[in-house]
Amino acid sequence: MRGYIPLSILLASALVLAGCKREERELRPSPPASEVVNETQVSGLNPGANPLPTPPTPAMYEESAYAVSEGKRLFNQYNCSGCHANGGGGIGPPLMDNYWVYGSQPQNIFTTIVEGRPNGMPSFRNRIPQYQVWEIAAYVRSMSGLLPKDVAPSRSDQLYVRPPEQSMPKQTPVGVTGEPQK
């Protein structure tokens, strides 16, 4: 019997140490020291041998259910639906399919939001704080099933228009630079 006690304590502490990133709630994001927008890379192609160093992927936003749900709230409140219509597309392209014009990586989406894109996507530089852009980017990815199902949001208190993000089948990204940069 005694042998089991240290074992279970070990197991329990391993669980706790691994922590639960899904439930992490960063309520007071530290203000970024400087904008890193220009470091993100839109194209997967590089001249020369060494690709530019990519900035650290903000995994904390993609792994936290709270951050993704904040992204969902901001997506609606900043009226992204005005053009992208709940992800189905309208004036802007649909976001719940597998086709990514400017890349499916969080950095790509970040750049799209901050810099804007030709043909109508406005630039939100200075208008949306950087951490919120990452949250929105994480949410946008959840719309095509690119986030784990236990992190993606469930249904909203709205009319039913499409399956909630947690029920979206995973869409393998294709598109101009849709392939993940590894």
Partner: peptide, 16 residues
């Protein structure tokens, strides 16, 4: 500048 220090979790973003 830092609304999240005063009301953590509220919906106003910090402004630099």
């Amino acid at each position: 500048i830092d609304p999240q220090r005063i009301k953590p979790g509220n919906h106003m973003a910090p402004n630099l």
